[in-house]
Design a protein around this nucleic acid. Structure first.
Lengths: 199, 199, 199, 199
DNA sequence: ATTTAAACGAGACGGTACGTCGCGTCTTTGT
DNA sequence: ACAAAGACGCGACGTACCGTCTCGTTTAAAT
């Protein structure tokens, strides 16, 4: 999620001495105050580092938060239990966690808008987080196809968007609760075509 | 999308003299610069009005944008063609338009984060736009139930979240294209349980 | 001494509400800490004003200090006692005061270098202070010519540079004391050609 | 111009390996950008040396520049032509060169203020440059006294301040041109009491 | 017609945070 | 011992934009 930047250490190698402390402090601040209210100076102080150090390694506030999220959100992997439905449910539960646990909850939407304005930055977040996350799901689906649980020509991308998108939208837009059975019901929809009924 | 505010004219009645010009200018600015980069002063100038006037009637930048969107996005209604599938597809196409046409595209995510931080503000946007939009869909679904096209105990809320959420997520997060057939394929998924195949 | 600037109120008219308090605070800070060590924020606080206000009206720290000096240093006028020598001594004593009283002492040299880097800024200081100061001296000299105390074709500019420059140089460069009789001895030099003797 | 410092090599002996390259680079940078705008890092790069090396040998930017000037400005000696007036004119011409040739022109005033803030530093510059320079002038004056050209009780210090100060002041403050005959006219003033006429 | 109140234009201001710059220090690694 | 490399602390600078405030003026309804 970096700005289109030449900062040397936004990606992986080297980076600042206290890289871990910084990213942790960033996620903490994010969880406490949300994206708009958190301050770069606050993150620096919390990490025991000077603000200038942050700007030496990340191009902007958005960039810093982007990489912190990419480094902080778990991407998987999803266990292979042999049961396609269970695996997908597990994956979706992970997604729900990612979008509802404090740091991401407040940060993701702001980031998407903030960084979408400069071309190429959103790509960074996608590469550093989404791609890994989605490839794990795709692997599960592939296993499901092998087992005959899923048609071979399924549109995996759309399937994932249905699962993750519904959850994302509930969380951020419609505000409907993400209750207990939601993961199962969505997986059943995309897997077996079970029209969702009222619980 | 108003702040929990006592501003007299955020809702409908009265309001500033140039209410229409202001809301239009807001949407224009939104479309051109995005939420973060647009400025209240810029909107005021564009509307031929002084900044103070905006703050007399809306509590904040977010509030202004929220109401502009609420007033600017079409909510429906959806025609009753007698064919449930066609009606839902038409509704979903409207949703896609709302989320991909320039103003909303750049504004929605920022807004959701910006306003979600102060409790109760997101409610305003939901009331002024989402509720109307969703009630139109619900009406279509009800007609579908009457026709026997949809089970009576369908979870309408979840159904709408699947439709709108998938589209929203593609647009903002995964970045996958919203190609031609997407509306039909999603409607077929929630209506007939047709697992989405590659086109 | 302003930057080549379009700030509306650097010169005279209007200006910020607390113009006087600001200029006074600037001179105070200058006297206490010197040019390099004083801070714009400190001036703002002292003046009971916000830093942004200063930058709304002056282009930079140097510009602010320049105008403060221009406004703070007395330029004259010099009384006409009827005695050319006495008048010139009085004028030179004023100059000594200007260059040795606390604010200017620490500020002038820094300013000269700081602002000389951007063409035209030094001009501002000259116009807002030096010109007035020098015209008073020139008037005295003119009266002296009328009285026959000074040759009509005297090089007034050079005469003033000898007087002020010697004082300035002692203060800033050579560090020799500006003792009691110095004004008289310099005036006698340029007026009567009396080679300076040890006191 | 050093800080009251214990740096081993600020004065003469030993010093860094590339002492000459460093001092030259310092003067170059000074001439190009002026004191404020030049950077220590830039000097280091230009000298093919690391910044830390500079700080091992000089206490500060000001100190470095001070010594570079002390080493870079010629102090004399002034030839003894047997003619007091000619000798003094030659000396003053050297002074004019020192204050108008590029490096010193931009550096001196800034330095004086920058270093005057820490007590004792200006002393360094005086010792490393001014004293030598002034002793050459004093020698010339002494010879002039021996020849009977100058009264024995002349105030040599003041005489030098008049000569150098006027030039310094023209260059930095009043901005009047340092035209051709200026050296002669000033020398004639202090030597013969010739009131300066318009050329 | 005149009064009066609401709305508006104008624009300075306080405030928060951002991102930048350059000095001077320090640690690590050679040589 | 000295030097290269380069991250870092630190203090300040100058900028942007938000939202508030005061004051004078227009507009329009009410008397």
């Amino acid at each position: 999620m970096p700005a289109a930047s030449t900062r040397p250490g936004e990606g992986d190698p080297a980076g600042p001495r206290d890289r871990h402390a910084i990213l942790t402090a960033t996620l903490d601040a994010l969880g406490e105050h949300g994206y708009q209210r958190m301050t770069v100076e606050g993150v620096a102080t919390r990490a025991g580092v000077h603000k200038a150090t942050l700007y030496r390694w990340w191009a902007s506030k958005g960039s810093l938060v982007g990489w912190a999220l990419g480094a902080g959100l778990p991407t998987g992997p999803v266990p292979d239990t042999g049961n396609t439905r269970d695996d997908l449910v597990a994956w979706l539960r992970g997604t729900i966690d990612n979008y509802t646990s404090t740091p991401a909850e407040s940060a993701l939407p702001a980031l998407l808008s903030d960084l979408a304005s400069e071309p190429g930055t959103l790509e960074g977040f996608r590469r550093s987080f989404l791609d890994a996350r989605r490839s794990h799901c795709a692997a599960t689906v592939t296993r499901g196809i092998a087992r005959g649980d899923i048609p071979a020509d399924v549109d995996v991308g759309l399937l994932m968007d249905v699962l993750a998108g519904t959850v994302f939208y509930r969380q951020l837009v419609s505000g409907e609760p993400l209750d207990e059975g939601i993961a199962e019901r969505l997986v059943d929809l995309v897997l077996a075509g079970t029209v969702p009924r009222l619980p």
